[in-house]
């Protein structure tokens, strides 16, 4: 097994009837087992990139495509969505788009992908029960998915992808409907899944969260990959704001303390680092 699990090479995409490229000669690699975050302003191409990684582009959304994407050796262009789904799973930005609308209950919704794979009934039942508990939706298993609140649908959407145990998990702003601790809880689950060896690719607008979870961060701006690196190198880049991204608040705190001479430590990018820095600065 190679170190790289996913490779995007000189990739460009223009939707049908659109004039501008949504993705413009994008290049990057994702290491096997890493927690990889994609950030950027709205309209920078993040969701289009997610759709490209799992093959929805070019197999579902048509347009003009250049360059290529390889998912663990598979050429996305030459592989079907079905083949790719054995390896890579995407949780959509809008959880309502994740629903099959053929399932009468949440349990059937969770079973949908497993059924397509021919997983035996008994195994399926166990997996559904486990996933429902993990996602805290065990009390709504017999409800129709369309009757649920936005937050509950988001948990169902996440569960319906997690249950397929993909080797690569792509999450496109997957906690927007959840309360703050609920979102944190989902990220802790994702981190655990990542810890078991699954490669995770996350699109998120919450920079504090990105800074604390990511191994590597990719910044998209106007369809171009303008920066890639560790959270520290990305979030301490003074040019970041011109890409429509504000660094975590912790960076602001560090800058203020440094400017007034209260600290000379390196910039804090997570809550823990920031608290540590402030405590030290208080001692004088």
């Amino acid at each position: 097994m190679g170190k790289t699990i996913l490779e995007v090479k000189d990739f460009s995409f223009t939707y049908n009837q659109a004039i501008n490229k949504v993705l413009d000669h994008v290049n990057f690699r994702v290491d096997r087992g890493s927690f990889f975050c994609i950030i950027g302003a709205n309209g920078s191409g993040k969701s289009t990139l997610c759709n490209s990684l799992v093959g929805l582009i070019p197999h579902y959304f048509s347009g003009e495509m250049e360059g290529g994407i390889r998912v663990d050796g598979m050429d996305v262009r030459k592989s079907s969505i079905g083949e790719l789904s054995q390896k890579i799973g995407l949780v959509f930005q809008n959880p309502f788009n994740q629903l099959s609308y053929t399932a009468g209950t949440v349990a059937e919704e969770l079973a949908y992908g497993l059924g397509n794979r021919g997983v035996p009934g008994k195994v399926m039942q166990e997996k559904i029960e486990h996933m429902a508990q993990l996602m805290r939706i065990d009390d709504v298993l017999s409800k129709n998915p369309t009757e649920l609140s936005g937050g509950q649908v988001q948990r169902v959407a996440l569960g319906s992808v997690f249950i397929l145990d993909p080797e690569i998990l792509v999450l496109d702003e997957c906690t927007t409907q959840l309360d703050p601790l609920g979102a944190e809880e989902i990220f802790e689950i994702v981190k655990k899944i990542n810890g078991s060896g699954v490669t995770v690719i996350v699109v998120d607008h919450d920079m504090e969260r990105v800074a604390s979870y990511a191994d590597e961060v990719l910044v998209l701006s106007g369809g171009r990959a303008v920066k890639i690196g560790s959270p520290r190198s990305v979030f301490t880049d003074p040019e970041l704001e011109q890409y429509g991204v504000n660094p975590p608040e912790y960076v602001k705190i560090s800058d203020m303390l440094r400017k007034k001479g209260y600290t000379n430590r390196e910039t804090a990018i997570t809550e823990d680092q920031s608290i540590q820095m402030v405590k030290e600065a208080l001692k004088g």
Binding site: L181, E184, Y250, K252, I253, E271, S274, V278
Partner: peptide, 23 residues
């Protein structure tokens, strides 16, 4: 299931007496 904003959390974590929301 609510957590205060980041700046507030840092202030609370470092035991500052006030509860700030802005830089």
């Amino acid at each position: 299931f609510i957590t205060p904003p980041p700046i507030t959390r840092v202030a609370q974590g470092a035991d500052l007496k006030k509860t700030p929301f802005t830089g």
